[in-house]
Simulated assay, not measured.
Amino acid sequence: MKFAIVSKGDNKSNILTEKIRAYLEEFELVYEENEPEIVITVGGDGTLLHAFHHYVHRIDKTAFVGVHTGHLGFFADWLPEEVEKLVIHIAKTPFQIVEYPLLEVTVRYIDGLDEKRYLAVNECTVKSVEGSLVMDVEIKGEKFETFRGDGLCISTPSGSTAYNKALGGAIIHPSLASIQLSEMASINNRVFRTIGSPLVLPQHHTCILKPVNDVDFHITIDHRFLVQKKVKSIQYRVAEEKIRFARFRPFPFWKRVKESFVGE
């Protein structure tokens, strides 16, 4: 089996990375950065997001597993002291593949430039570079509302526990193929009106944002920060592709939610 390791880059993660690589090579697994079958991330959920975007061109062939060296993550769920057990699993055990939905983001432009397509594991956010964000929101090809406020966040079920949760969005189990639209400080008065609640859209529904004014936008795709000009529309839907995780033991999602946000 071919494997690669992506480290957060701090001393603790780098030491653990070298340890994992040495162990796996003792089992005669091949270290291959370009075409790995499995990618081990060492750090946290952010490290796994970086690894995903690095290998996004081969997500149908590469599975991910995360070791966390800081706070417990939703993706990076193996402890540093469990590394030897994980290595034996990778080397000796046929692993289960678990697939989670991704968000497809398609940006189209006024001046006829080629559209750009992105995939997000967690979310995409949109904000105006200056002033309030003003966007017509279309769902299934029909105008739903004109949003005015700080911005909008469109998240996957995996990302529902991230920025979406901070905005008051619902936590959605990652087995549900859906996307969620959440508002950032919407303006609601006698003149302007938005739904004011997060919207959860199923797999066969598409959401399109259309700028009311010709302004520049700040768009994030997970950790990536982009400035977009001359935007005609931004389209969101559940992607046909999925992120693949190598699962060696049960992954109790609701237990993880409890541990992260409620405690014992």
Results as ranks from 00 to 15, higher is better:
T62W: 09
F64E: 14
V65F: 05
V65L: 13
G66Y: 04
V67H: 02
V67C: 13
H68M: 05
T69S: 05
G70D: 02
H71D: 11
H71C: 13
L72Q: 11
L72D: 15
G73V: 06
G73R: 08
F74W: 10
F75Q: 11
F75E: 11
F75P: 13
F75C: 14
F75N: 15
A76G: 04
A76I: 03
D77F: 07
W78K: 10
W78T: 07
W78E: 07
L79M: 13
L79W: 10
L79A: 13
E82H: 09
E82C: 09
V83D: 08
V83K: 07
E84S: 09
E84H: 04
L86S: 07
V87I: 14
V87W: 07
V87N: 06
I88H: 12
H89K: 12
H89R: 13
A91L: 08
A91T: 08
K92W: 10
T93S: 11
T93Q: 13
T93V: 09
P94T: 12
P94N: 10
F95R: 11
F95W: 05
Q96K: 15
Q96H: 13
Q96E: 10
Q96T: 11
I97E: 12
V98S: 14
E99M: 14
Y100G: 09
P101T: 09
L102K: 13
L102P: 03
L102I: 10
T106Q: 09
T106F: 06
V107L: 06
V107P: 03
V107F: 01
R108Q: 07
Y109E: 11
Y109N: 06
I110R: 10
I110C: 12
I110Y: 12
D111F: 03
G112Y: 11
G112R: 10
L113V: 05
L113K: 15
D114R: 13
D114C: 14
D114S: 15
E115P: 15
R117K: 15
R117H: 15
Y118S: 14
Y118L: 12
L119K: 06
L119F: 11
V121L: 12
V121Y: 08
V121T: 12
N122M: 03
E123A: 08
E123N: 09
E123V: 06
C124Q: 05
C124T: 07
T125I: 11
V126H: 02
K127W: 08
K127S: 09
S128T: 04
S128C: 13
V129Q: 15
G131A: 02
S132M: 12
L133N: 01
L133R: 03
V134A: 00
D136R: 02
V137Y: 01
V137E: 01
E138D: 00
I139H: 02
I139R: 01
I139E: 04
I139S: 00
K140C: 07
K140M: 12
G141W: 02
G141K: 02
E142I: 00
E142F: 03
K143G: 01
F144R: 04
F144I: 00
F144A: 00
F144P: 03
T146P: 01
T146R: 01
T146F: 02
T146M: 10
F147M: 00
F147W: 00
